[in-house]
Design a protein around this nucleic acid. Sequence first.
DNA 1: TAGATTGTTAATCGATTAACAATC
DNA 2: TAGATTGTTAATCGATTAACAATC
Lengths: 216, 216
Amino acid sequence: MVNNKKCILRLSRYKKALTRLRSLGFKKVFSDNLADAIGVTPSQVRKDFSVFELSGNKKGGYSIDDLLEKLNRILGKEEVEKVIIAGYGNIGSALMKYKGFEKEGINIVAAFDTDQSKISPKAQIPVFHIDEMKAFIIKEKIKTAIIAVPDMVAQQIVDTMIEAGVKGALNFSPLFLRVPDEFVISYVNLEVELEGVIYFVNALNNPKNNEIADAD
Amino acid sequence: MVNNKKCILRLSRYKKALTRLRSLGFKKVFSDNLADAIGVTPSQVRKDFSVFELSGNKKGGYSIDDLLEKLNRILGKEEVEKVIIAGYGNIGSALMKYKGFEKEGINIVAAFDTDQSKISPKAQIPVFHIDEMKAFIIKEKIKTAIIAVPDMVAQQIVDTMIEAGVKGALNFSPLFLRVPDEFVISYVNLEVELEGVIYFVNALNNPKNNEIADAD
DNA sequence: TAGATTGTTAATCGATTAACAATC
DNA sequence: TAGATTGTTAATCGATTAACAATC
């Protein structure tokens, strides 16, 4: 198993770029083109591919169809992934409607909240009371979740998820959550990211500094 | 200038943790406590602080008030930061309502969209037609923006922003955008993040593999 | 063939961690 | 004082990049 998050995230970006190239009618791609498309070096592309034994033809580049098929397999896209959302506030409801997930074969199957006025079990994508989450996870064998609940309850929600069998989550709560080593958790922290941008904007536009900051 | 994005993002996380500790009545904190609060090593905390000349007392730890004041200064929080949002779809409108930003002294001052039905120039936070964005940026001297427009127009929108004087952006479009070196851009790519979680969930629960993946 | 591109190894780079002297 | 914690240096670790042999 490749244990390098940044590399995996790049695979996902290659996939996106390849899909676009294919839709433009391309059949073949060179490490150069792909590097350009996602903003890395050609060495990086070839290294990443080599790690996953994605091979091309010397001189002939890589077959886009072939790469896409293999990337989908690596990223677990052979079957549609069922994901639930805990918390149906601003973020949770935006994510439910977000088109980007279904495009990638990710299927949001339900959301959960405490607020009675938000609950709609008959909707196309149902919103249930949070008390029903545990049973739902067990019944539907949910492995992946999105945490978009208020900070105060985030730890408690992830604990429940873990008990019920969830193996990984995308967490929008700004708190650091305590989870077992084998639980996968990825933090998306919008304030922190935006504060980072603001810091570099100020720092780069301050005449004292003249270095260049990395985008990543 | 410290040119290490991950370090800056940690400063923002320290700040969050310190605010919480202060609200619980604490006055002092040790590198140990902070490390624990955000999930890093005590060495990391002391190293980060040393880089920014945030000093404590040997034996006595760090003063929370003092740290918070200095962190706010470093992160440019002495004045409220004005930010605009391009694109008032699912993501854009969720971000407008998002409480996390104002908590951190980030002020969303306007949003822009092409869809006439979304435009409301008299709202508390106004939504204008995208054609008015450039003039608004110039007039209000906006330095930081959030890009939440459809993929197809993301490059064009960031070009306009740059022309008008924006210096950095948080980009929710999954495309790699071409920007000048001195423009700060941070990518938040929800599909990519979620795909990463799914990959590790599958990989870790596949009997062939028994290594542990890093959360970050 | 000659030229171009892959695949892989070795070198580089930078960030994290460990260790420990200084010191409160 | 003795013990604990900071602040910093050096060691380690891991990821990225450069270089180049293999080869289509």
